[in-house]
Design a protein around this nucleic acid. Structure first.
Length: 313
RNA sequence: GCCAGGUUCGGAUAGCGGCAAUUCCGGCUGACUGUAAAUCAGCUGCCUUAUGGCUUCGAAGGUUCGAGUCCUUCACCUGGCA
């Protein structure tokens, strides 16, 4: 299977580029985005930023101008979704059978690393009861506990990061208690490792990325986003984790009257800037990415040429 | 014109004699092995590094071993009386 991974920070035009390439090379698109997997979260996750487009929505996919995008609308926002769930989902698509090039496009670096097999997941499932219990404890207690049951991991972990500590303890306990079949399940999902994918990274100057992000926030912070947020609250998803991040956090504060529109918009922009920085840090350490500057002349042709030669090779 | 309050490192704020100087925002760098749009860490006056040096708190003088902090004058801003 030919796989083209199209990644980069938010607002670099990955999706529209993917649509263009998908049409040009008769491929498929899989979204690699930890928030676009959620139903009812379209505007704030920037699923499609172009209004002049025909959209048809399905369960786990959208059709945009008749081009299919997988990885959208898989679940509702009250469901937790992890990188492992993402791998399972991609696996379930059985992409090989289409015999077409697949464009994996998105901004969630960790998911890309999972797809590529750069990170190997432990195979230990989440234990909600244990997590609730551990969340009540402070960092010192969690560190002590981890040191007791897994001294090696305790030596390498970020001892100040509670989320990490809880997961590390969960893994240590789960290794001994969860069934072997479950733990080995992840190994079935790393079929992409054996492939030789093409990695394309979209980037640009910080100032440009910030400017585009700001313009996008300005454009959505009107009725479209407000309707979406109101709907999410009505459906009872207002407190769900995915609705508490980035754009949605400030949009909800505005709808609730906790923030003025001006401050909510400002907050959203600054949060996006920080997100862009984090994405660049993450992608920056990934190996083998062909970086392309979106503001460079001949950008579109360059991309097409790269994809063409990859598919020919 | 008189009275009161203010002017601090990109922005906002703390500081009422020992200060390179608080906090928040912004900006920058980084971590991450099933929450990754989450979670966590560091830097942000200059000297590449400092338990080191240098230059700073509207301006100019003064008091003091020592001044962002006290005094005087000037400049600008805000509120009250005219």
């Amino acid at each position: 299977m030919k796989a083209i991974l199209l990644l980069g920070p938010t607002g670099t035009g990955k999706t529209s580029l993917a649509l263009r390439l998908c049409k040009e090379f008769e491929g498929l698109i899989v979204s690699v985005d930890s928030r676009q997997v959620y139903k009812h979260m379209d505007v704030g996750t920037g699923k499609i930023r172009d209004n002049n487009v025909r959209i048809q929505k399905g369960n786990g996919w959208w059709k945009v101008n008749n081009l299919k995008i997988y990885g959208f609308d898989i679940i509702t926002p009250d469901t937790t979704f992890s990188s492992f769930d993402f791998l399972k989902y991609v696996s379930s698509l059985n992409l090989v059978k289409f015999n077409k090039p697949v464009f994996f496009v998105g901004g969630t670096g960790f998911y890309f690393d999972c797809l590529l097999g750069n990170v190997r997941l432990s195979g230990v499932e989440k234990n909600t009861k244990l997590r609730l219990d551990l969340e009540k404890q402070n960092r010192e207690e969690l560190n002590a506990k981890l040191k007791e049951i897994d001294p090696i991991r305790a030596g390498s972990i970020d001892s100040k990061n509670k989320v990490r500590l809880i997961r590390a303890i969960e893994i240590s306990i789960g290794r001994n208690t969860s069934p072997k079949e479950v733990r080995e399940q992840f190994s079935l999902l790393t079929y992409l490792i054996a492939q030789d994918p093409l990695l394309l990274g979209l980037t640009g100057h910080r100032a440009l990325l910030y400017q585009r992000a700001d313009a996008w926030v300005d454009s959505i912070f009107d009725t479209s986003l407000m309707e979406e947020v109101t709907m999410l609250e009505q459906l009872g998803f207002g407190q769900s984790l995915p609705v508490r991040g980035l754009i949605y956090k400030s949009a909800i504060s505005f709808v609730k009257g906790e923030l003025s529109k001006k401050h909510a918009v400002e907050r959203a922009k600054f949060d996006l800037h920080a997100y862009i920085r984090r994405q660049q840090t993450y992608f920056g350490k990934m190996k083998g990415i062909n970086w392309l500057d979106i503001s460079e002349n001949g950008f579109d042709n360059k991309i097409s040429t790269l994809v063409q030669s990859y598919l020919d090779g």
